[in-house]
Write a protein that binds this DNA or RNA. Structure first.
Lengths: 333, 333
DNA sequence: AAAATAAATGAAAGCGCTTACAGGGCGTGA
DNA sequence: TCACGCCCTGTAAGCGCTTTCATTTATTTT
């Protein structure tokens, strides 16, 4: 392996000078710089980032915990972050927590062991206390898609309650009164808050929330199908269904069709997230837009801001969802 | 920062011994080990992976280049790899190449600088020669979704030609003879090979390939729409469309519908990839399954096999696609 | 009980780089 | 001409860990 030492010898300078031209620190005479550059090229020198990290005590790396790698959601979020970080010459080290407390803790620990300069966490299983404690330690961190009051400044999230509210309001405005709700996993904050928004909307219209019209799922498509079938078994009547996310809405539409009901003629369906293919479903899915990419970008900005001292960027901690009306919902006849 | 040194002092042993208990190397008396463990706990010691990597000259990290982070395709692939690597206690360092030669090279260089133990590359813009050259250097690498003969042993890919062949054969078997083809980006090997498979199928049925029935796209949904519209402008007649991937098929179905054509009544459509939501489209999409996750897993196995000396796993270098018939295709009346 | 072998530990030399700190060279103003 | 500063460069001390080699201690063997 070619080292800085060898380069310095060939170039006839000290290793400190080589380091200086690599990092563009201090001043180096142009002539010297050229000699060094030539020596590096000649020897095929490759900078050793590991050694540099150890010596300088920073890695230029942001640790990133997501629940899963598959599915388009986290990919979009990471893409948002990546672009911002790349422009600042920072890298991401991505690991997966699988919504499991042990796993999440283990991975966070691993990221700290790797001496990440900062962390972006989309974690679901660890407690608020754990995160509050972590935030009080030396490594800066931003929590994504989760709001924890005590460390609100470190959180970037979507207003899920408003999102759920918007969705159900839309159905109500269309004249629907018997509205089923297919919830996401309720142990997750977003699942809970979206449902809360739904209830809030009902309350505003003076309607009672009927427990029997709600089925808890897990954000996956098949749980949307299951939800519809459960409602059917319960013999419930409804003219609209609000879903915790678009995947579940896809499943719901399929299940409704299997039961011989047309969407939106017989039942209106609204999703949440506005995933990539929402407009490729038939009918095109009415949903609530979740600016995932923006959230990812925002998280990265926060890091740049806090850790690398880039203060010329505006920050938002709570992003607002917005209603997107397409073909899967319509006014009640 | 708590170091191994401090731990060793508190435990009354040398730092070498502490290192031994951390890494489980050599033999350490049980009593000593306990003392060290206690000291570590008491001081809140956290292993410094960077320092360890420098000293041991390995990082336990696999560098991973994908074109993009968003979309469900690469997410699934990475998930496949991640699971295998996690079980072996290895980590992934993911970067994006954006199908741009400069970018891909830059990122590969960055991964080497980070001293990754091995590389998994899903790159599209760099030349075969570049990869062949890279493979001859010191860092082991596996190329995914691309077959380069000279380094065939380092490649893991899908038989795209067979995939394209299967798709068109299906349509032919259903009696279709006027089959349009919406190609992916033809500068990419998979785009090219899928089209080649299409041609092969036509040839086998003694049909001429009609250039005018083909439109080149870019694998994205809107290019599927554009493709259909282009065909329409050209005034082409066809009873079936084979698409380079499911996204384009989604777009195509939408565009056909806008032109007042029913799928599959008027036109049969077949996709490629079997992405997550293929069965949530209406009609459910007939497609060719792409075992992405398996490919990701296989790549990781290869690494484990080559780099970390785990030889008890079977390898496959070329995976086979298979036809999945759903509702978007039907026999010609 | 002495000798031979095995087990457990320590000393110390790096791994390749960064970064104070110090020093030499040189232009400028008095 | 001399002193002051400014550039530019070199010296050397780490960063926190691994690992070889040597040494000490424990266990067998004869």
């Amino acid at each position: 392996m070619v080292t800085i030492k060898q380069v310095s010898e060939l170039a006839g300078v000290s290793s400190a000078t080589v380091s200086r031209v690599i990092n563009n620190t201090d001043t180096v005479k142009e002539k010297t710089r050229q000699q060094v550059l030539q020596a590096m090229a000649k020897l095929g020198y490759r900078h050793n980032v590991i050694a540099a990290s150890l010596a300088s005590n920073k890695t230029n790396t942001v640790g990133y915990v997501v629940p899963e790698l598959h599915g388009s959601f986290f990919g979009a979020m990471m893409a948002g972050s990546e672009k911002v970080l790349r422009d600042a010459n920072k890298h991401m080290f991505v690991v997966t927590g699988h919504s499991d407390e042990k796993q999440e803790k283990k991975e966070i620990e691993a990221l700290l062991s790797r001496r990440c300069d900062a962390l972006i966490l989309h974690v679901e299983a660890v407690s608020d206390e754990y995160l509050i404690d972590l935030a009080s330690q030396d490594v800066p961190l931003v929590v994504v898609n989760r709001y924890i009051e005590k460390i609100g400044a470190n959180c970037i999230s979507l207003d899920n309650l408003t999102g759920g509210y918007l969705a159900t309001c839309h159905l109500l405005e269309q004249g629907h009164r018997d509205i089923a709700y297919l919830a996401g996993a309720l142990f997750k904050a977003d699942g809970k808050n979206r449902l809360a928004g739904h209830k809030k909307a009902l309350a505003e219209y003076g309607l009672n929330y009927n427990e029997d019209l709600m089925v808890e799922g897990n954000f996956q498509a098949h749980s949307g199908e299951d939800g519809i079938n459960t409602l059917h078994q319960r013999g419930m009547h409804y003219t609209a269904v609000a879903c915790a996310n678009d995947e579940m809405a896809s499943g719901a539409i399929n299940a409704l069709r299997n039961l011989g009901k047309q969407v939106p003629e017989d039942v209106s369906v609204i999703g949440f997230d506005n995933i990539d293919y929402a407009s490729y479903l038939t009918p095109k899915l009415t949903t609530v837009n979740y600016p995932v990419r923006d959230i990812g970008a925002m998280a990265a900005r926060w890091i740049l801001n806090q850790v690398y001292g880039d203060h010329q960027m505006t920050m938002k901690h709570i992003l607002m969802p917005e209603l997107i009306v397409r073909g899967s919902s319509r006014a009640l006849k």
